[in-house]
Design a binder for these strands. Structure first.
Length: 581
RNA sequence: GCCCCUGUAGCUCAGUCGGAUAGAGCGGCUGCCUUCUAAGCAGCGGGUCGCAGGUUCGAGUCCUGCCGGGGGCGCCA
């Protein structure tokens, strides 16, 4: 079987020889067409005509005359302005969908060169509650991991948790004050915020506590075994708590993916030494810095990346550099993605620049910041992550399931046993889809009603469309697999069948575009359009009561491929799909 | 002050390497459950694509300037 390719590429390839006769290598510029009755349009003739000082429509006419599109298109027309309008033949389209149905990957070709990709995402802080600010990095990062795996790459998930730094002196002393058992209990029930706040309160209230905390930091940094043991208690309890959240959210992260800041401690002096050896290090105001080119601060003077502070402590830049060294060295990564908020853009750009200069990063394009916009409060300001009260991620997940349970109870005919599982998939699916379905770079205002909507362009709408595909097979006691082996002929008679078929063939392009730009919302948009076209088809084209057995079987193929596409699409986004709802 | 991101329908957002008459969801209005799941469908109404220039056969898309919003700019991470 020929390698499945996207329709635009296929048409462009068919037109290329004709374009080459005018000007070798000129681009046919094939795009989907919005015009009624036209599937694609080739716009390249107009630019070509301009360059050759000829009439666009005449150039287009000649190209059409030379091109061999008989087998593929039912109509090829040239507009007065020089657009070439291409309409695929129903029979060709039907045959194409038949092939598509037999492909378990639904037309998505594995990446020609499999890479090792490190994805850095989620990164919550030890002894701190996961809040809604962690949602975007976690959900987007997880979707990218799944997409990359599906594309054939080796994915190394790294959860770069905040498990080191001066706050731990305070946290450990507080742990001792309330007793290990009580501390472990508080942390294990996920009440990290009150633990952290109580530590902070003790620190602010008592000079004696402050002194103990400072001393404890020294003990921690010097590797005192008992202090490390207490620190480990905090880390272990926190990681267990994170894991509970991840499982509720249905993300891939495991405790074994945790590579906390502390894991680079031994590397930090090495990094400093190597930066020094390469002549990159400059001491400025007592701090050891690198001044990457092109970065300036307020007054126009060069902006430093502070690697080692004047007090001898290492800044987080040192940790980030060590992580880059580790990822491209020990792990031999081909690519590292940083699913980190947009405010860190400058910091990461500086780290990447320094890492490249230091030889840690082989080439600039191999480290990619995948930024996302801020979650804003009702006041349109950034949700505070430091002192300010924000919404706990756990509370948001609770609310998602509560609302979904109510919706399931109200709308679904499922029995009680199935309802809980479906409510979880619907609620969490709605929440994740809400985050994935808009361009990640944009800021958005935190809003329960928007994030947990179940109608319209939402996760549940996609789940529901798939459920409606599956219910047809259940109703008729048919196996969906029998319609996904390429053995059943597809015929196209009604417009909704045709529109659905055309959309199904666009899956690989949607995946490609999503990965090319690290933008899950592109796949969401595709799936939503597909679900809408399926629903139109579902409303107007009876399947089990089709006019003939041939049409019935053909429509069953369309249902089967739609279900498979929605299921696979949701799956690579990290959204579960129930069998019924 | 400098830099980054952003501005599209009442609200929330899509809009592909610049293509023809800018789309969807929510909300509003009108219909549609005796036929495969109404978390749905069909239809109506809704636009100075922030503003002004420029490039181009063609600009929501590219360039410049201005305005509004968010963020960043040396020892927190």
């Amino acid at each position: 079987m020929e390698v499945m390719a996207g329709l635009p590429e296929l048409l462009a390839a068919a037109l290329q020889p004709a374009f080459d006769r005018f000007e070798p290598g000129s681009d046919p510029v094939v795009r989907p067409s919005g015009r009624a009755g036209v599937d694609f349009q080739a716009n390249g003739a107009m630019a070509l005509a301009k360059r050759l000082s000829q009439r666009p429509s005449e150039v287009a006419e000649q190209i059409v005359g030379w091109a061999d599109l008989q087998a593929v298109c039912s109509s090829v027309e040239v507009s007065a302005q020089g657009f070439i309008n291409l309409t695929l033949a129903d029979s060709w389209l039907a045959g194409r969908v038949g092939l598509h149905a037999g492909d378990p990957r639904l037309g998505v070709v594995p990446a020609p060169r499999a890479m090792t990709v490190v994805v850095d995402y989620s990164h919550p802080n030890v002894a701190k509650e996961m809040h809604v600010g962690h949602l975007r990095t976690t959900v987007i990062g997880d979707a990218l991991c799944r997409l990359l795996s599906f594309a054939g790459h080796t994915v190394v998930r790294e959860n770069h948790i905040g498990d080191w730094g001066t706050p731990f002196g305070m946290l450990i002393e507080h742990l001792l004050d309330i007793g290990e058992e009580e501390a472990a209990h508080e942390l294990s029930v996920g009440d990290l915020d009150s633990f952290y706040r109580a530590s902070r309160a003790a620190f602010d209230a008592s000079p004696e506590f402050q002194e103990r905390a400072r001393h404890r930091v020294v003990l921690l940094q010097s590797g005192d075994p008992e202090t490390l043991r207490l620190w480990q208690v905090l880390v272990d309890q926190s990681v267990a708590y994170f894991q509970a959240v991840y499982e509720r959210l249905d993300v891939l992260l495991q405790p074994s993916d945790v590579v906390g800041e502390s894991s680079y401690n031994d590397l930090l002096p090495v990094v400093v030494q190597e930066l020094d050896e390469r002549g990159l290090l400059v001491v400025s105001d007592g701090a050891r810095c690198v001044f990457p080119e092109g970065f300036v601060n307020r007054d126009g003077t060069p902006l430093p990346l502070i690697v080692q502070k004047s007090d001898g402590g290492f800044g987080y830049a040192a940790t980030d550099l060590a992580a880059l060294r580790d990822r491209f060295g020990r792990l031999a990564a081909d690519l590292a993605l940083y699913v980190v908020g947009a405010p860190q853009a400058q910091h990461l750009a500086m780290c990447f620049a320094v890492a490249e200069a230091a030889g840690y990063l082989p080439s600039a394009e191999q480290a990619v910041h995948v930024p996302f916009g801020n979650m804003l409060g009702a006041d349109r300001k950034m949700f505070k992550t430091r002192a300010g009260a924000t919404v706990k991620l756990g509370d948001l997940l609770d609310e998602a399931v509560v609302r979904a349970s109510a919706a399931v109870a109200e709308r679904s005919e499922l029995d009680a046993g199935e309802r809980a599982a479906v409510a979880r998939m619907v609620g969490i699916g709605a929440l994740k889809y809400a985050d994935l379905s808009t361009d990640r770079i944009r800021d958005y205002v935190f809003d329960y009603d928007r994030m947990l909507a179940f109608d319209g362009n939402t996760g549940p709408y996609l789940q529901y469309a798939r459920v409606r595909c599956l219910s047809i097979f259940r109703r008729a006691s048919l196996e969906i697999a029998d319609f996904l082996n390429g053995s059943v002929e597809v015929v196209i008679s009604e417009p909704p069948e045709r529109a659905l078929a055309l959309a199904l063939l666009g899956f690989s392009a949607a995946i490609d575009e999503t990965l090319a730009t690290w933008s899950p919302h592109k796949l969401c948009t595709y799936l939503f359009d597909l679900a809408g076209l399926y629903t139109t088809f579902f409303e107007s084209c009876p399947v089990l009561k089709a006019p003939s057995p041939e049409v019935r079987d053909s429509r069953l193929v369309l249902c089967a491929v739609t279900a498979a596409t929605l299921g696979l699409g949701l799956s690579v986004l990290g959204i579960e799909a129930p069998e019924r709802m």
